[in-house]
């Protein structure tokens, strides 16, 4: 078994373009929308998504980042402390519709943590979730509003989103389960 590419550059572009249209349709425009990415790659996707929204609507919505690290439920269980990423809420989010963006939706625990973090900053009118990939295996009652691609996986596989800014290439890769001895 080897790694296989699940989305290429064009696939990612098209998925983001479709999500942008879905956000506009669902919210009847982008008034009151704030796009917040979950670092690192969710943040980069959030910026791309905001650009696409700007191309369609003429003006891009505010973009920021919401770091869920300090709100995680596994901090006391891992041996190492995860590094902190950036928290950048660009404006008062009271009454706004926040679209959170993550690269891969998996157990849903990161999203739960990110929502708790957001609540410490204000009371959004609504929180919506966009994920480039939904790989299944939810452990919490959480569902994405916008999905780039559903990729059914086994728990042993890994799903990696590579983006130009961090990895020099735009692609989604499903990593094979490690060989059993």
């Amino acid at each position: 078994m080897k790694n296989k590419t699940a989305m290429d550059e064009l696939g990612i572009e098209r998925a983001l373009a479709r999500i942008a249209h879905e956000i506009i349709e669902r919210n009847k425009g982008i008034a009151g929308i704030v796009i917040l990415g979950i670092p690192t790659r969710g943040r980069l996707l959030a910026e791309r998504l905001a650009r696409k929204l700007g191309e369609i609507e003429g003006e891009a919505p505010p973009v920021g980042a919401v770091d869920a690290t300090l709100y995680r439920d596994d901090l006391g269980m891992k041996k190492d402390q995860p590094p902190l990423k950036e928290m950048e809420i660009p404006m008062d989010i009271d009454g706004k519709t926040v679209v959170m963006v993550d690269d891969v939706l998996f157990t849903g625990r990161t999203i739960r943590a990110a929502m708790n973090a957001l609540m410490d900053f204000g009371r959004p009118r609504a929180i919506q979730l966009a994920a480039l990939v939904d790989r299944g295996h939810r452990e919490l009652p959480i569902k994405a509003d916008y999905v780039g691609k559903n990729i059914p996986t086994s728990l042993k596989e890994g799903v990696k989103v590579h983006l130009n800014e961090t990895d020099g290439v735009n692609e989604v890769v499903v990593e094979a389960a490690p060989e059993q001895k």
Partner: peptide, 11 residues
């Protein structure tokens, strides 16, 4: 965290 209105994280 200290710049927030709610200056507390649950960590």
């Amino acid at each position: 965290v200290s710049e927030r209105e709610i200056k507390k994280v649950p960590t």
